[in-house]
Design a protein around this nucleic acid. Structure first.
Length: 420
DNA sequence: TCTGGGGTCCTAGGACCC
DNA sequence: TCTGGGGTCCTAGGACCC
């Protein structure tokens, strides 16, 4: 038996936690560069705002109607998230932190001694009391069904945010009402194909012929159907799995045509990626760089390309990564394009501690280089200041804007709320 | 003028091998 | 004229998730 605990409009609710005056106001949170809407409260939804709406298109009307917008403040959201997760860890024996605002719980055991709906309400109450975050809880025999229940809890106000669909009758009722595109694992493309075969609701889907589905679609959809029928195929994964890939990418605040600026940006991303890699305790062998123009500017000629390089020895040294990233970029770069985004990807990871010895090249893991990177991370983590490489740029004119950001209420002493 | 970022998994196709 | 079959591994791209 599984539960899914899901925060309501998470980022927007985080902003409300410290601004009780916004409790009934329409609130949206914007992506980097204040580009588009990534979270919105139901009041904002009622004004016609949709997820992913470009901010510049809705800004005027939204403000006129009394809406409030925030740039994203990931430091704040991450902190509130981890507080919620630790509350859940005390309530349930096993927890899988699925994303910043969602967790699956394993309810085996609990179902013997407690009514599950009641358990859901307890979660809701405690999280509200300790953090001020509104959540909903979906309960079912598989993860996909718990997700479906969570959809039901959102969609139908009479549930008051908790829905248990262990009961077969309730489950089928929900499935006849739930459109296929709301199912976990059915995205835009699949939805389109399913609709063309007159599969509109979840109930239609579970009545499809499994063999047909396997042939026409994929094993993934087959598993989804099995899960919807109550057969658990996706286990709870309580240990965070080690990363297989690290990506750092940003859109620029301005259009960039010069190689110099791109080099700065890509070096900066390489440095951040190297930092993440070291935090994972890994080295990588493969590095890719990509750049692209703005696909929304139809009047511009477009260029998007990615190029990869496999290094001779796995590394997590910032200087190695910057060096190779710049070389790849030089290969990619073409004059006369308005670039608006660049990024770097690291793949093919090795454990930092297990090192493939080389017959001809002696490289000690305790070398000066290794110590230097450790020191770099230590300083950057502390409040002493930031060390960066010159290649990362000084002014960073391409870097993103965040004009509407809230204070770091919980992670910076100087931003702590003062009560008079 | 202004449209996000970071992940995972699956699949098809090519290279290569015997 | 006629040019195999089967397997593995890797990669790029698609689809999906939040």
């Amino acid at each position: 038996m599984f539960a899914l605990v899901d925060c309501n409009s998470f980022y927007a609710s985080c902003e409300r936690v410290f601004r009780p005056d916004l409790r009934t106001k329409p609130v949206v949170v914007l992506s980097n560069n204040d580009g588009c809407v990534v979270a919105l409260t139901k009041e904002a939804k009622n004004l016609g705002v949709k997820m992913c709406d470009p901010w510049f298109k809705i800004e005027r009307e939204f403000k006129q109607k009394g809406g409030i917008a925030f740039s994203s403040n990931y430091e704040l959201y991450g902190d509130i998230s981890s507080r919620i997760m630790s509350i859940l860890e005390e309530l349930a024996p096993k927890v899988e932190v699925y994303s910043i605002d969602e967790a699956f719980l394993d309810l085996t055991g609990i179902s013997h001694c407690m009514n599950l709906e009641e358990f859901g309400r307890t979660c809701q109450k405690q999280i509200m009391q300790y953090t001020g975050m509104p959540v909903r809880v979906g309960i079912g025999p598989t993860k996909t069904l718990a997700k479906a229940a969570s959809y039901g809890a959102k969609r139908y106000p009479t549930t008051q945010g908790v829905l248990d669909i262990t009961d077969l009758y309730r489950r089928e009722k929900l499935m006849t009402l739930m459109p296929v595109n709301e199912i976990w694992g059915v995205g835009r493309r699949l939805n389109k194909r399913l609709i063309s075969q007159k599969v509109l609701t979840t109930f239609d889907l579970i009545n499809m012929n499994i063999e047909q589905v396997r042939k026409q679609f994929s094993i993934m959809l087959v598993n989804t159907i099995r899960e919807l029928k109550g057969e658990s195929c996706i286990p709870l994964d309580s240990a965070p799995s080690p990363k297989k890939q690290i990506v750092v990418s940003r859109t620029f605040s301005t259009r960039v045509t010069e190689l110099d600026y791109l080099e700065e940006a890509v070096s900066d991303y390489a440095a951040r990626a190297a930092e993440k890699l070291r935090k994972e305790g890994k080295t990588c062998k493969m590095l890719s760089v990509f750049i692209r123009t703005n696909p929304f500017r139809k009047q511009d000629i477009q260029h998007r390309e990615i190029r990869s390089f496999s290094m001779l020895y796995p590394t997590n040294d910032t200087r190695d990564l910057i060096k190779h990233a710049k070389l790849l970029l030089k290969d990619l770069y073409k004059e006369g394009f308005n670039y608006n985004k660049a990024g770097i990807m690291l793949n093919n990871f090795f454990d930092e501690t297990t090192y493939q010895l080389d017959l001809f090249k002696k490289k000690d893991r305790n070398s000066k280089d290794f110590k230097m990177m450790a020191l770099l991370d230590q300083v950057n983590k502390s409040s002493l200041g930031q060390i960066s490489f010159l290649a990362q740029g000084i002014k960073k004119e391409w870097s993103m804007k965040r004009q509407l950001q809230s204070p770091r209420y919980t992670t910076s002493l100087k931003d702590v709320l003062v009560v008079n």
